[in-house]
Amino acid sequence: MALVIIAIAMLMRVASSRCAPVCHLGYPTHGTEVSGHDEDLIHFSLNLEFLEAEMFLWNAFGYGLDHAAPELVNGGPPPIAPQKANLDSLTRNITGEFGLQEIGHIRSIIRTVGGFRRPLVNLSAANFAMMMDEAFGHKLHVGSLHSALLGYVGANSFLIGYLSKRLVAGLLGVEDAVVREYLYERAAEVVWPYNHTVAEFTSQISELRNRLAKCGVKC
């Protein structure tokens, strides 16, 4: 009986291999892979990827791309005044994963459209304090919050090549969703040593991003 079952299974496998179509995933047989226009748009966003990678890595681990992925910096200058953040274990783990994800983003961009030297990024507390002052419209006495802009949503509709679109689709990850959930859970908490809640900071930073980006609401 066992031999009969095995024989039937083998016959069914042979029949299915002859009849079932084989799907080959690939790229279009015509069209543009990556246009020069695409390269310009994606290279602009590469600047932001470098910024985010350095910010997340330094915040979580106390080191940046020079240690984590030195082959990506291509001789570019190190960031200005980075420092490890005082984070609880959950926030540190999330931030660290974001940093590692940004390394993957940079590699994907370089592999698809080429890259350039890491730009100089200012991660100093004074620079972020200036950003927060602008967001609130007045000087805050202490400040070191981080903010990074994402350029892919606006650029996506202007891309031409199918490889460019596939690249950007892969880069549009879940960072914003994770951060927003994290912020919503703590919306009513007061950010020490300020007299402003997490919700107030989030709202003011979003308004600043809208003003800087122009042409409609971006967040």
Score class of each variant (00 low, 15 high):
1 M>Y: 11
1 M>N: 10
3 L>R: 13
4 V>Q: 15
5 I>W: 11
8 I>G: 03
8 I>D: 12
13 R>N: 13
14 V>K: 14
16 S>V: 10
19 C>L: 15
24 H>E: 15
24 H>D: 12
25 L>H: 09
26 G>E: 09
26 G>Y: 12
28 P>H: 14
28 P>N: 14
30 H>L: 12
32 T>Q: 07
34 V>Y: 03
34 V>Q: 04
34 V>C: 06
38 D>A: 11
39 E>R: 15
40 D>P: 00
41 L>A: 10
41 L>G: 02
42 I>N: 05
42 I>G: 03
44 F>G: 05
46 L>Y: 01
50 F>Y: 15
51 L>Y: 15
51 L>I: 09
57 L>I: 07
57 L>H: 07
59 N>W: 13
60 A>W: 06
62 G>N: 03
64 G>E: 06
66 D>F: 11
67 H>A: 13
67 H>P: 00
68 A>I: 08
70 P>R: 02
70 P>W: 01
72 L>F: 10
73 V>H: 03
77 P>G: 03
77 P>H: 02
77 P>A: 03
79 P>S: 04
80 I>C: 07
81 A>F: 04
84 K>S: 03
85 A>I: 05
86 N>Y: 02
91 T>F: 00
94 I>D: 01
94 I>M: 12
95 T>L: 09
95 T>V: 14
95 T>H: 07
96 G>S: 06
97 E>K: 08
98 F>I: 05
98 F>A: 01
100 L>P: 00
101 Q>I: 03
102 E>R: 12
104 G>V: 05
104 G>M: 06
105 H>V: 09
107 R>P: 02
108 S>V: 00
110 I>H: 01
112 T>H: 06
114 G>E: 06
115 G>L: 00
117 R>C: 09
118 R>L: 08
129 A>E: 07
131 M>N: 02
133 D>F: 09
133 D>S: 14
136 F>K: 04
137 G>C: 08
143 G>P: 02
144 S>W: 09
144 S>A: 13
144 S>V: 03
145 L>Q: 11
147 S>L: 12
149 L>M: 05
151 G>A: 04
152 Y>L: 15
153 V>G: 00
153 V>M: 01
156 N>W: 08
157 S>W: 02
160 I>V: 15
161 G>A: 12
163 L>M: 14
163 L>Q: 15
166 R>I: 10
167 L>I: 01
168 V>H: 04
171 L>F: 07
171 L>P: 03
171 L>D: 04
172 L>P: 01
172 L>I: 14
177 A>Y: 11
178 V>W: 04
178 V>E: 08
178 V>F: 07
179 V>N: 06
179 V>T: 12
180 R>V: 05
182 Y>E: 04
185 E>M: 13
185 E>N: 13
186 R>T: 07
189 E>V: 07
196 H>K: 10
197 T>Y: 08
197 T>H: 08
198 V>L: 08
198 V>S: 11
200 E>T: 07
202 T>L: 10
202 T>R: 11
204 Q>N: 13
204 Q>M: 11
204 Q>P: 01
211 R>E: 13
213 A>R: 11
215 C>W: 10
218 K>D: 06
219 C>W: 10
